[in-house]
Amino acid sequence: MKLKHLLATALITVAAALPAQAAEHYNFDIKGQHAFIEFKIKHLGYSWLLGSFRTFDGKFTYDEQHPENNRVDVSIETASLDTNHAERNKHLRSADFFDVEHFPVATFESSSYEPTGKESGIIHGTLNLHGISKKIDINVEQIGTGNDPWGGYRRGFEGHTTLHLSDYNMKKAAMLGPVAENVELFLSIEGVRQ
Rank of each mutant, 00 (worst) to 15 (best):
R71G: 15
D167F: 04
I76F: 02
A86D: 15
A16F: 12
D29L: 11
K134M: 04
A35Q: 07
G156E: 04
T55A: 13
A106Q: 05
M175D: 15
L81N: 07
Q65P: 00
L92R: 09
E114M: 07
E181A: 07
I37S: 10
T161V: 02
G152M: 05
I143A: 11
A86S: 14
L50C: 01
K135W: 00
G45K: 11
T9P: 00
G131C: 08
Y46Q: 12
L50V: 05
H160W: 05
T126V: 14
N147W: 01
V100N: 08
G45D: 10
L50T: 09
F36H: 13
A17P: 02
K172Y: 08
L11A: 15
H124F: 00
E68P: 01
I122K: 13
F39S: 08
T107V: 07
L127Q: 08
L176H: 05
I132R: 12
S94F: 00
L44Y: 08
H34S: 13
V183E: 04
A15G: 15
T161H: 03
D148Y: 06
T83A: 14
P178L: 13
K59R: 12
G151I: 03
E184C: 00
T13K: 00
V74W: 01
E114Q: 15
A16V: 08
S110M: 07
I136Y: 02
L18E: 08
V74D: 04
D137L: 07
E181H: 03
L49A: 12
Y153D: 03
P67L: 07
A22E: 06
F36E: 14
D167L: 05
L163G: 09
F56S: 13
H5M: 12
G131W: 02
T61A: 10
N89Y: 01
H25D: 13
G125F: 03
Y113K: 04
H25F: 12
P178G: 13
L185F: 04
V14M: 12
Q194F: 06
N169K: 14
S120P: 00
G45Y: 01
Y113L: 06
Q21C: 02
N70S: 10
A20C: 01
N89D: 15
P67I: 10
K118L: 13
E87K: 15
E77I: 09
M1T: 13
Q21R: 11
F53I: 09
I143W: 01
G117K: 04
G152R: 05
K31Y: 10
S80I: 06
D29Y: 00
I37L: 13
L49R: 02
E190P: 02
A10N: 01
H164K: 13
S94Y: 04
I122F: 02
Y153G: 07
F108P: 02
S112H: 09
K59F: 05
L165G: 09
R88Y: 05
E109V: 14
M1N: 12
Q33R: 12
A20G: 08
H102I: 02
T162F: 01
P19E: 11
A15I: 11
D82N: 14
A79Y: 08
V100W: 05
D137S: 15
P115E: 10
L7Y: 03
D82G: 06
G156Q: 04
I189H: 07
Y26S: 00
V192L: 14
G177W: 06
F53P: 00
D73N: 15
A17F: 10
K2D: 11
E87V: 09
